[in-house]
Amino acid sequence: MIRFDDVWLKYRHQDRGPGALARDVLRGVDFKIPEGGFRWLTGPSGAGKTTLLKLIYLAEHPTQGRIDIMGTHAARISRRDAALLRRRIGVVYQDFRLLAHLSAYDNVALPMRLARRAEHQVHADVTEILRWVGLANRLGALPDELSGGEQQRVAIARAVVGRPKLLVADEPTGNLDDEQAGRLMTLITALNRLGTTVIVATHNHALVSAYPAPLLEMAEGRLTAHG
């Protein structure tokens, strides 16, 4: 499902001219996650967790090495196929990344509309998932009118509404109380049982302990543990 083979990534220094490279953000990362697998991604801030997730959801290309996502060589994929592949990946961003001018309903509906699902199906799925995350009465609210926790729940709903084959979450419980975090994890584990491959980056050790799963542990751009 996901395979990293000696993956390196360097960010370019924009102010040092073309070709100028900064330090390595990822250094020779190797791992595999089988289809339907669940992995926690942990490590201190700056370890490279978010960068690794960006490579998985095709927001970055590696400087060196090979990445396969759902059987596709990420570096050789066409732009059209990359877009289609992204539709099968649900992403919960650390900063939510909601569209400020769209309501909670429209934000969650966006992936389904981009996939050209029928509007009656969009309505059924969006209202159901927003009800599940406790926002049934906030469908028309704009992101600015929602609390941080509510925004995070909208972002989670958007990531899972299309029943993705791969779910990537970057600190998905960071703004949630324990009860909401528990509901979210119930949702994620349910998706995982239905076959969705899941990788969740977190600093929350209590959460990791409560939902035991193999760990990908990072430090200074390297994978230090692969359970």
């Binding site: 059209r80 877009a83 592949l85 992204r86 539709r87 569209l99 981009l114």
Partner: peptide
């Protein structure tokens, strides 16, 4: 820019 990056990340085709 940010909106487009989000929509792009959600799987919008360049043509869309």
């Amino acid at each position: 820019r940010e909106t487009i990056e989000i929509i792009h990340g959600l799987g919008a085709q360049d043509g869309d």
